[in-house]
Design a protein around this nucleic acid. Structure first.
Lengths: 244, 244
DNA sequence: TTGCCTTTATTGTTGAACAATCTCTAGTCT
DNA sequence: AGACTAGAGATTGTTCAACAATAAAGGCAA
């Protein structure tokens, strides 16, 4: 039985609902790839692993479901969500809408918002030089999160964080994340410089090209991983751990 | 003890989680103003009303909390959320971002998306002529929902529906919704005609003015209702049904 | 009045139990 | 053999009763 990180639960602050702490731990396990898409989430098993009641664990799963990281079918159960090509397209539609809006409205950005942008870019660059590719990926996502942060809207921030979490879920089925990310660091930096220079129209155009290529690459990767997952129609599923 | 709509629960389709049905019923009760902002949601009491276990009712409340319609404090309890001035400003920031993005990207809208826009405008106009002001309000909100629908993104649609639900929560504390809405029907129609004519820049500008006035009006109303709710510092709360 | 203690109500969490439903296997029939 | 049916087993959905933990309310003394 795979360990999913019970320590993460106890590491959470005490002044929080147990279900929330479990949800945080489960979310981390999913986003770090310890629970691959398609993995069944059986409540009894997970409740035992997290040393938590079945009820509270179901609460946690419910949260992840509303976050779009888990699918639940009545009387069939929950599983880590398998994001389809359409989902990826939708995610990029959201990115286009929000990030463009952020850039176009960046005229009234505060100094802190702008510095958090450059900080994310620097982090990505550092990680890139040190060949820490996982950190490159997260830093790049943080850059785009900071981008949306230009809107200054907590609700948009929370929503976009959720969207990026789903995007990470797409990443987790990719062959290897290593050389996948490094191309984007330079483009992130260029985008940031355009924004900081106040050249909003140019930045918006560059963002559009950026998202175009990124989306195309990811959709290709999804198709490849799907072809790999289902080479023939009669291939048996391993251990019955996946549904759909 | 006020009835909150048990029939709404049993009216839901059977092939759904009980907690979901309760959540739908509770959400309706909140948005229709049967449960005013600040009302405590005690789980035992509500569980009895809905003839449902305490556990599942807590599940429902959890959903509404993640939807932003209910606030929950550890060991203190849940209550219908009281949206502040800052919340209203944030909601309008989201509206600006999403509706503007929808208009600017409306060049590749489908015929169905455009017809759903005109349909919402017509509904609002009809309701306005028949002086059914509550319907006017909902139709107007549906119009703006259809506007965001131009993006063709299910995720944006769901998020925006949630935002509009919170906006309705703000409306529910307004003095009277009657003459409040009728002004906007004409502007909705104008906005729609600009969009249907493909004059996107003009539509975006009009939308900006629209949201500006709407936000100002609502913030004024919030201040007024706050002043009315707390006329003096030592006024006693009625029945202890409100917190914060 | 202020501060402290006790009571009380409400919430947070658990474990066991039961019903409902799906899945898989075995067997039966044609 | 192949298709259909029945039933066992597993998993989920829901409930209930209980207990612990905490916050709010009330009483008492200084």
């Amino acid at each position: 039985m795979k360990d999913v990180g019970v320590d993460v639960v106890s590491a959470q602050p005490v002044e929080a609902l147990t279900a929330d702490r479990v949800a945080v731990a489960l979310r981390a396990a999913i986003l770090q790839g310890h629970l691959m898409p398609g993995t069944r989430l059986k409540d009894v098993q997970l409740a035992a692993q997290f040393q938590v009641s079945r009820n509270t664990l179901r609460d946690a799963i419910r949260q992840l479901t509303s976050d779009g990281l888990v699918t639940t079918q009545l009387h069939i159960g929950s599983a880590v969500r398998i994001l389809t090509e359409d989902d990826a397209r939708d995610i990029y539609a959201v990115r286009r809408a929000l990030e463009t809006a952020a850039i176009l409205g960046s005229s009234r950005a505060t100094r802190e918002q702008l510095t958090s942008i450059s900080r994310a870019v620097n982090l990505a660059s550092d990680a890139n030089h040190n060949s820490r590719w996982r950190d490159v990926g997260t830093a790049s996502l943080e850059f785009h999160q900071a981008l949306v942060g230009l809107c200054g809207s907590p609700r948009l921030d929370a929503f976009f964080a959720n969207i990026l979490a789903q995007l990470r879920l797409v990443f987790s089925v990719m062959p290897d994340e290593s050389e996948f990310q490094f191309e984007w660091v330079a483009r992130d930096a260029q985008l940031a410089s355009l924004i900081l220079a106040g050249r909003r129209a140019d930045a918006a155009a560059e963002l559009d090209r950026y998202l175009e290529s990124s989306e195309a690459l990811i959709i290709d990767a999804i198709r490849a991983s799907r072809a790999k997952a289902f080479p023939r129609r009669d291939s048996a599923l391993i251990e019955g751990q996946t549904i759909q």
